[in-house]
Nucleic acid binder design. Structure first.
Lengths: 201, 201
DNA sequence: CAAAACGTTGGCAGTCGCTGACAGAACGGA
DNA sequence: TCCGTTCTGTCAGCGACTGCCAACGTTTTG
């Protein structure tokens, strides 16, 4: 997939991971706003200028994972059969996320990251913006396979599915039992299944 | 309502409106990112320091209107009868927005502002964050009148309704006919009406 | 009417995120 | 070995934003 790079790209990824790890540790220890880019750079032993050569912004250190999520979701949607109701397609696309919450270590790490995000207005804003971008992309993907669909309704359907996702994630991030993430998501998505599916017009 | 202030508060509001008007003109003329706070301050004849005594941030100049929207929505939800399905309550709460789009001048102004917002990633992020806050507030409001409701599902329902709203607004902001805003919203909300209403458990 | 109390304002200096430009070091290939 | 590419640090600067202090005007009080 994306792993088609030379040695340089590999080294770059490694450095990025190192920065992200150090940064996350600092964020967890003292908060996002209270951690300066200089501190992060010093922690990994590089200049502030070099930090910005690996991440476009301080937000990106945490939110970069969302790029991969976006790719995964788009791929999952593309792989589903054409006739399938969009709601089911979206629900299936979320499966990998549920799997992530099945593993204890990854689940708690994810919850910690989410807590960092929701604790900082600045980060939360950037996070929601990325989610919005992902929704746009998925809407395009879904529109491509249903020529005569209604774009506005489709966009709303995708947004609705993400509302379920966001509700479930926020809940487990704010003290809710992370083990029940899947059931939370399913409960929301079952209740919110659209009455009229756009492809049924 | 909120108009219970003395002369000082009145003068403050007037200055705020003046700043907002000047700022919006600059944003429309040369873009949000390209307009500095110093320019805005100079345009209204005050120091940058004073600007920040009226608005907490540059974003706030544009997004402050959302505070009023939040109040209106919360009030509209509170006024609706207890037994009414949440979906209808939310749809009714959006009525004032539709009325706004009925008036030509306000409609075009709203579309212009929305275009400013969606043209700047920074602003869009802040905008989405405020919308998220409003949703949180409406969720609380709705939960208060349905004791044994499911908070996650309720949050998802509110998020779904806002997804419809966002889809309709974005569409009219990006070239869509603003006059059909109401029909766009209705189409989306009719299609997305939840199959299971949380109060029907 | 003068003095005190209060709120508003501007200037200044400083922090923090972020960027462009430059020069030197490290690396790989020819 | 030399050459070009990439990576790196340093420096200088911009823009958003904040804390501090001094000046001013208005209102209240003795």
């Amino acid at each position: 997939m994306t792993t088609g790079g030379g040695l340089r790209e590999l080294s770059r990824r490694a450095v990025q991971s190192q920065i992200a790890a150090s940064a996350e540790a600092l964020f967890i220890a003292q908060g996002f706003e209270e951690t300066t880019v200089d501190e992060i750079a010093a922690a990994v032993g590089m200049s502030q200028r070099s930090f910005f050569r690996y991440f476009a912004s301080k937000d990106d250190v945490i939110l970069d994972n969302l790029e991969r999520l976006a790719d995964d979701l788009a791929a999952a949607v593309a792989e589903r059969p054409d006739g399938e109701p969009e709601w089911d397609t979206l629900r299936r696309a979320f499966d990998p996320l549920i799997e992530q919450f099945a593993d204890r270590a990854r689940r708690e790490h994810g919850a910690a990251v989410q807590r960092i995000i929701e604790d900082s207005p600045r980060l939360l804003a950037a996070y929601l913006q990325r989610l919005d971008g992902i929704q746009q992309r998925l809407t395009d993907e879904l529109m491509a396979r249903d020529e005569d669909g209604d774009r506005i309704v489709m966009r709303a359907v995708v947004g609705s599915a993400f509302a379920c996702l966001h509700a479930a994630i926020s809940h487990v991030a704010c003290g809710g039992d992370p083990e029940r993430f899947g059931s939370h998501l399913d409960r929301a998505m079952t209740a919110l299944r659209p009455a009229l599916i756009p492809s049924q017009r």
